[in-house]
Design a protein around this nucleic acid. Structure first.
Lengths: 227, 227
DNA sequence: CTTAACACGTGAAGC
DNA sequence: TGCTTCACGTGTTAA
């Protein structure tokens, strides 16, 4: 049963224009029928009640349009997030809040990664984006002594982890080298890919240390960033 | 007047428990009063009407909690976006949709910008992020013949536009150079800063062309990306 | 039978 | 005044 409980509607019901038992009526034609009956039962053409009833109808339809507008935006949000169509409004909005916070943090971190080689060895792996199709994008930055065989080994490491290289940067300065890699992980990778990549790069640098390099201060374990 | 229009409430009103004219009552104490009066007017302790009335009260409070949950998330979204607290729900959600689409597009574009110099001259300026405090971040990429005085001139251009350089990359290959710059604009800059930067870089490259370089195919106007 | 989620109509308040 | 937005209570439906 539709609410239809305003004073005006109750007055009409008392004057013979009852709901009856026809539940299948469309809302607009039903309202039209009400207004017609009301006009016929009065003498003057546009009574205050007439205008109030019209206003009530306008109000009702405006409110319906407002609801449709809000819900259409909510559905658009649903399509923009990795979630099915049956997540309820509150959970959907919670996911939107979380996603916006992630992206805002990423925007800061992406610009924070230094491009010049630093004095200390370091490895940074930060998760950069979770697309709605499940693939995730990492940005890895590593800094160490310059050596010619590093880049091929890096490629080998990425291939062994089934990571696709989207972009690679390299910068050398004062005998040091920094590599910045943007890699994409398949959807079957989880958040643990970050740590896998982190450990692979760490062993790569340790290997080069033990072979032909003097020991150097490292900062591996202080630069893991997993947002 | 609060709705309170269910069949149960109307039944109660007919049996002497009217609303009266006390509009300032709190909802919960009012409901409690109703239930007490109803129990007193009946003989048995827990009638079906009793349970129905309790269910109605539970339903009402559950609905209120649901509204609070949704609205709290909407307020969180309000604080995450550059908008005041008086934007209505529909407009707020529209902004959220727009912002999420921007960020999703950015994630693609950031990884799309090539790092190696290309054969054709080109300038790309893409708006990268709008923080909630009003500052915006641009990513500018320019590719041309390698020349030593380009970088100081670039810095000068950025200073003249009151843009703060967050990060700069440079790569040379085969006599060509590519510079990628991440710059931040103050909050008094608008979206037009993108075009200002675009034009400044364009004139910078044209100047170098006219001085000491042969004409070369350009692609300035095909690589402006303003999302 | 409860519980949760939704759409609806309605009164109130701001402009 | 009318128009818009909001919160509320309610009926309904699905798990």
């Amino acid at each position: 049963m539709q609410p239809e409980n305003s004073e005006l509607y109750r007055f009409l019901a008392q004057n013979g224009v009852g709901h009856g038992s026809s539940y299948g009526f469309s809302s607009s034609s039903y309202d039209f029928q009400i207004m017609q009956s009301f006009s016929n039962s009065c003498i003057s053409e546009t009574t205050p009640q007439d205008r109030a009833l019209a206003a009530l109808k306008n109000h009702k339809e405006a409110e319906r349009r407002r609801r449709e507008r809000i819900n259409s935006h909510l559905n658009r949000l649903r399509s923009l997030l990795p979630c099915n169509s049956k997540t309820d409004k509150a959970s959907l909005l919670a996911k939107v809040v979380q996603r916006l916070r992630e992206l805002k943090q990423q925007a800061v971190e992406v610009t924070e990664v230094e491009n010049l080689p630093s004095e200390t060895d370091e490895i940074r792996v930060l998760s950069c984006d979770y697309s709605s199709d499940g693939t995730s994008i990492f940005k890895a930055s590593l800094c160490c002594e310059d050596r010619s065989d590093l880049f091929p080994e890096l490629i080998q490491v990425l291939n062994s982890l089934h990571l696709k290289t989207l972009r690679a940067e390299m910068a050398t300065f004062g005998g040091r080298i920094r590599n910045v890699l943007v890699v994409a992980a398949d959807k079957d990778h989880g958040i643990e890919s970050v740590h896998l990549l982190q450990n692979a790069l760490k062993s790569l640098l340790e290997r080069s240390d033990s072979i032909d390099r003097p020991k150097r201060r490292r900062a591996y374990d202080h630069n893991v960033m997993v947002p």
